[in-house]
Design a protein around this nucleic acid. Structure first.
Lengths: 197, 197
DNA sequence: GTCTATAATTAGATAGAC
DNA sequence: GTCTATCTAATTATAGAC
């Protein structure tokens, strides 16, 4: 295997540019704006070429979803060996580029079966790896895993970060400082295992 | 004022049916499916009539948003005098009919200025009234409002409930039982003011 | 107030030249 | 592989009859 590049001809530069362009349009203008003509223009090609790489627009959307989920999975796996997986989990889900796309796919999944199925599959894979990372972190800190189930802590951190991000996007920021501070205090409580009623 | 009904001729039955029909379509099939023809059919009228009541589709969307926000505000105001505002806050945001619409508007707001502006306005009004209700509840229970700022507790409860609902909609349920149990335990901790480090 | 009819625009998708 | 050109269908919005 002298040439790991170009292993698959389908892994083309144009194909990749179309996926990235679609993600960009979805983030900036919403999924409804991600038409074949719009994403083709964004990628610098003509509209018909979209259908050379993707049979339907839904197929393109699914590929965008997979690419995004793969990046998230990769980052979380790296976090497994990190000093502080909880902080990594918070940071990943505080990335507006990630959460904006997530919101669009959540809405898209509401009325497209193909995307709902794919979203479910990847959401559960991401949750599993996140839970594994949080389990490592909590166990290392001597936290009672019965009272603070890693899967619940993982969801709480991820969803709170995402919610703050989503609100920022539409310009709602009231209460954000207080919630961030509260979360940080609670994370430190977990890190410093003393109390519990 | 013998006839409080029909005070405004714009408060028509047809107009109201159009707003309700639009909300229904948005919930069930997403905002992209809420076309003038689709909502007209759902309301049992012809397409062109939509434009008699609403200048543009965006105007219709804004009215749907207002109607939904008014209901939420009304429920939360009632909760101010309730036994347990925290439970009411959780219950309201666990209603799939509310949270599905909310997700759609969040996505819509991403690329329509008129809706983003309106969403921001109502989100902040809802947050204020929710915070007031939570303040009442926490104070009555002797909770330290510095360590647990009502606005933060309010956001945490509302956003966690909404997140669980949204995931249910797309079929993701893993970890839900654990997170619900954790939230309930924490709510009881707040209700029974003993520990804190 | 509700309708029919239609204009103007835009979408997804395909055929075929190069 | 990328293009031009085009088809079909659906959309928003308007004009005008009743």
């Amino acid at each position: 295997m002298a040439a790991p590049r170009k292993a698959k001809s389908t892994d083309n530069a144009t194909r990749r540019r179309l996926i990235e362009a679609t993600a960009r349009v979805m983030r900036d203008e919403g999924y409804a704006a991600a038409t074949s003509r719009r994403v083709a223009a964004e990628a610098g090609v003509k509209q018909a070429l979209v259908y050379y790489y993707f049979p339907t627009m839904d197929d393109l959307f699914v590929e965008v979803l997979r690419a995004g989920a793969d990046v998230a999975l990769h980052r979380m796996r790296a976090a497994l060996t990190d000093d502080d997986p909880l902080q990594v989990l918070w940071a990943i889900n505080s990335d507006a580029r990630v959460t904006s796309l997530n919101t669009e796919f959540m809405a898209l999944a509401n009325h497209r079966k193909a995307i709902r199925t794919e979203l479910k599959t990847y959401a559960e894979r991401v949750r599993d790896i996140e839970t594994a990372a949080v389990t490592v972190a909590l166990r290392a800190r001597g936290v009672d895993l019965e009272e603070y189930p890693p899967v619940a802590i993982s969801m709480l951190i991820a969803q709170t970060a995402r919610s703050l991000c989503n609100e920022d996007t539409v310009g709602v920021t009231h209460g954000h400082a207080e919630l961030r501070a509260l979360i940080e205090r609670q994370l430190h409580r977990l890190a410093d295992p003393t109390p519990r009623s």
